[in-house]
């Protein structure tokens, strides 16, 4: 293809984006756009799947049958989100199994929040409230993403995530209105999850190299720092309703900006966890790798049986 042609294609592509016309799987798109989406959507899919582990950890110990059923349903939703997202990745020509192998080899990332352990029952409510709450901030914006399949998948995912967020909050309301032991359990979970939840929005804008191009392509609509600020602004009043203290002595309403001020994030911790040194990185990847390896014979059996059936039909 001539250089001029490529420039023309890129120009038309950007015009479509500027006019808010969705890009569909068979449309022409720049290689970098495709690569960026494959990376982002598969990371998102991996986050859903790895995210099943800390919560799954509490299914057998949920405190009553209703909470057990709700948690089962929630984790099942996450698995379903993983499925849609892997399907979206496939519309871009990537192979689901290959992207999963990248997760297991450490080449592909997933949301760092899931590298923190869920050690008490209050963590389950807190994950629903803060982690799903932070995810929604990101995902609502993604419903308007320029890539059609991702944007449409996100609409359904957002509905379920917002339900999870409310379930998490409701679970914490019960704890915070319960005994002092329960309230303390909720506060302890808040103390451990607050900062990792703020880290979910990624590096600050001046440290986020891919952001400008993603904004231009309308894969991203808001910067990391903007989304983080919206999350803090939305969450502080909810913490007040619960009567929980946010573990930040500098958290304060700023009349001038109309936003809450908060302390700087511990970026050393953020990068250490991203790079594999969080409390559970090793366990999470081991669990997923083990599931894949131990499931190999099951997948082989299903394939072998399907082949036998096909042969019988033609015979």
């Amino acid at each position: 293809m001539k250089t001029m042609d490529l420039q023309e294609l890129e120009k038309r592509f950007q015009e479509k984006i500027d006019k808010e016309i969705k890009i569909e799987p068979n449309d022409w798109m720049p290689d970098e756009y495709r690569k960026t989406l494959i990376r982002q959507i598969s990371q998102h899919a991996h986050s859903e799947i790895v995210g099943m582990l800390p919560e799954g950890n509490w299914i057998t110990r949920a405190p009553n049958l209703r909470r057990k059923a709700v948690l089962l349903a929630k984790v099942q939703d996450e698995a379903g989100h993983g499925l849609y997202l892997y399907s979206s990745v496939e519309t871009l020509g990537a192979d689901r199994e290959a992207t999963i192998d990248d997760l297991h080899s450490g080449k592909a990332k997933y949301s760092s929040i899931f590298n923190y352990p869920a050690v008490t029952w209050a963590d389950i409510g807190t994950i629903g409230w803060l982690v799903d709450g932070a995810a929604i901030m990101n995902q609502v914006a993604l419903c308007r993403c320029s890539y059609g399949p991702y944007a449409r998948g996100m609409v359904k995912i957002c509905k379920e995530e917002s339900f999870h967020q409310r379930q998490g909050f409701e679970s914490l309301v019960t704890l915070c209105n319960g005994t002092p032991t329960q309230k303390a359990m909720a506060q302890d979970a808040m103390n451990r999850f607050w900062w990792p939840a703020l880290m979910m929005f990624g590096p600050s804008d001046d440290e986020s190299p891919n952001s400008a191009q993603s904004m231009k392509w309308k894969i991203k609509r808001f910067s990391n720092d903007e989304l983080r600020q919206s999350f803090v602004d939305a969450t502080v009043p909810q913490a007040e309703i619960l009567g929980l203290t946010i573990p930040d002595p500098n958290l304060k309403w700023n009349e001038e900006t109309g936003h809450y001020d908060f302390s700087p994030i511990n970026w050393d911790e953020f990068w250490q966890v991203v790079n594999g040194n969080g409390p559970c990185n090793k366990e999470r990847i081991e669990a997923r790798t083990k599931a894949k390896e131990e499931g190999m014979w099951v997948r082989e059996a299903a394939m072998a049986y399907a082949e036998k059936r096909a042969l019988k039909k033609t015979a």
Binding site: I49, G56, T60, V75, V298
Partner: peptide
């Protein structure tokens, strides 16, 4: 069955087992 959650041999089957558990 709930113990399988997150550890199933195929994602679809992970969902199926959790569903039966539910």
């Amino acid at each position: 069955l709930g113990e399988w959650c997150g550890h199933g041999p195929i994602l679809e089957e992970d969902i199926a087992m959790t569903n039966i558990s539910l």
